[in-house]
């Protein structure tokens, strides 16, 4: 770890969790270096976070070391539209299915992975569902019906106002009489 910290700008987040930010150009080479020149030989998770207001995704490669007691997040910002990242299947075979999932859920392309077919959704033509512009509520409203008989739901704040106004006018009427 000490050796790695000299080479890369690694931040320590917790005693067993480290983070490293790299650019998209150096991503593959960094992962290659870590896979073969360091203890971090396992890819345990491939995450993606949508920062829609900054117009970028954040990819996170969660690497775990041989002893399984230390995790290193290699993170990389990528654009949100038509973006392709080099696949790491050659380094970590388990990345195949993780990349397939991100391709389906976020629409991120992975160059070099030829198994990017359907993962959990079948024949999905809509927007990739985990992108933040995909509106779950709108999708539900256009595809499903809500249960009948719940139209008598009242807005409590409105009701308090109405009742206060009614009480006030009743008082005034009393005072006038």
């Amino acid at each position: 770890m000490q050796n790695l910290m000299q080479h890369f700008e690694i931040i320590q987040k917790t005693p067993t969790l480290y983070a490293l930010h790299v650019s998209i150009e150096t991503l593959f080479n960094t992962l290659h270096h870590l896979r073969y020149q360091s203890d971090f030989i396992t890819l345990s998770q491939l995450t993606c976070t949508d920062w829609i207001e900054e117009e970028r995704f954040e990819l996170g490669y969660m690497l775990t070391n041989l002893e399984r007691n230390c995790n290193l997040m290699v993170k990389c910002f990528i654009g949100r539209d038509d973006v392709t990242v080099a696949s790491v299947v050659t380094l970590f075979p388990q990345a195949e299915v993780m990349e397939r999932e991100l391709h389906e859920m976020f629409g991120v392309g992975f160059e070099g992975n030829d198994t990017l077919y359907d993962f959990a959704l079948e024949d999905w033509q809509d927007l990739p569902p985990m992108r933040r512009e995909f509106d779950t509520l709108a999708y539900v409203q256009s595809h499903y019906d809500f249960r009948d008989g719940r139209d008598d739901n009242l807005d409590v704040k409105e009701q308090i106002k109405i009742r206060k106004a009614a009480a006030k006018s009743a008082k005034e009427a009393q005072g006038g009489a």
Binding site: R150, D152, N153, D155, V156, K157, R163, K164
Partner: peptide, 18 residues
Amino acid sequence: IDMIAIDVDKNPKNNSGC
């Protein structure tokens, strides 16, 4: 959860009647 109008007011502190 729906908030619906109460038939008989049992609690005077219930400001909304729901």
